[in-house]
Design a protein around this nucleic acid. Sequence first.
RNA 1: CGGGGUGUGGCGCAGUUGGCUAGCGCGCCGCGUUUGGGACGCGGAGGUCGAAGGUUCGAGUCCUUUCACCCCGACCA
Length: 473
Amino acid sequence: MSNKKLLPPKTGDLADWYTTIIQLADLSDYGPAKGTMIIKPYGYAIWELIQEAMNPLIKAKGVQNAYFPLFIPMSLLEKEANHVEGFAPELAIVTHGGGEKLEEPLVVRPTSETIMYNSFSKWLQSWRDLPIMMNQWNNVVRWEKRTMPFLRTSEFLWQEGHTAHVAHDEAADMQKWAMDMYAHIYRNFFALDGYVGYKSASERFAGADTTLTYESLMPSGKALQACTSHDLGQNFAKPFNITFQDKEGVDAFAWQTSWGLSTRSIGGLILAHGDDNGLRLPPKLAPTQIVIVPVRPEPELITYCKELVNQLQQAGTRAAIDDRDDESFGFRLNKAEVKGIPIILKIGSKELEQKLVTAKRRFDGYEEQISLDVIANKLSQSLDEIQAMMLKASQEYTTKNTREASDYDEFKRIQSEHKGFIKVYWNDNAAVEKQIKDETTATSRCMIEDGVSGTDFVTGEPATQQWIFAQSY
RNA sequence: CGGGGUGUGGCGCAGUUGGCUAGCGCGCCGCGUUUGGGACGCGGAGGUCGAAGGUUCGAGUCCUUUCACCCCGACCA
């Protein structure tokens, strides 16, 4: 029995499936204001697991968590020309406070470079103060024209890391470190494969010299920009006067980076792994990893199940019991599947008698019986296996849907026949990219190889870089 | 900002050329029977029909205005 009654097939209208599953699985709800989203406890629990995965890595790098204000004076935001130009169309601006018109409008942060660097400037005096490395978990607001839960909301949650360094190579290393960290999180926690590379001139962050991105392919064949990491050069250091005296006593501008990963990642998680029966969460990001579903609400059976939950929790797994006696066995099983719980344990009189459990994997539906004396180890191992299977599936999907084009005709042909990534030799050129976009709706996602030799797929000139193109979310 | 759509109990919807007490399914509450893949019976609660104005003896239904949200494109994490 599937969940077709309630959930449209994923292979049909993907947007319909997506918006339905988000509500069915109790991840989020729409807020009363346009484009806003209420993240419900089950969805927020996923976000907390993401935070728990990333925070230790961020802290181990020496980056400290801090918090900067939500409101940015307009004049601060305007200091870096490219930055303000890039964000101007999507700003929410506060003009009144306490019933009075403000002298200077306040921008609700779309990102915190400007307000943080205003402080960096004050705090930084000596080379001994460097590097400055701060991160904040916060909300930002971007007035997007078209919104979708998790993938693009007017307000979203993220972490934004910001650093300042003595030298450019240190900053460039930091930029790479952040993207390595993200790639690790995406592959090993989200089980989401993707390409890491540099953004083209027209796609990069407003105010950055270079932008690194993680581009993951969604079932629609569109690419999701999953997170970014920027080398800001001295673009902000100069207008914000972020200077220090170096070892020689000479005043110098700092070199900076910023990097962020948002709740959009949860949208990617839902899209990439879900199926016709609901969510399929990778064990590492599943708020509940194992759910025990007793067949009947008989005291003896419930006791057996509760002991098992304790045992599994002590073994370090996130286990829970669903013993609601007003819902039938089948209903509770379906609920667990909709919510994407990786392992479902079915326990009835047969299991009770024979001292075993019946375990079903959500990912592939595989079902087995496991003896009670090995249960904790076996299930921990099974969770690892599921995590690995999901990553493998994602990698296969990405590989299968990455095609190479040697010239523009072939590019257009592939694009019309398949959705997905197209790998090409190309020289970054904004005018050419605009033309490609107008003609095919595809844009460059990222540059994955540099220092190679090939032929530019549009102009036919020699090219030294290899790029990935796709339609984007 | 362009195009399309929708606003009627918590959710999904029906409501005819204006007409009588605004309905149905799911969910919810109570009691009972059930429970190995979305159980059933009986009883019950819950609505200023998005808002404002107008036409009319009479408006969920017609007219005007307006608001909101959703979906599809151009801009974006």
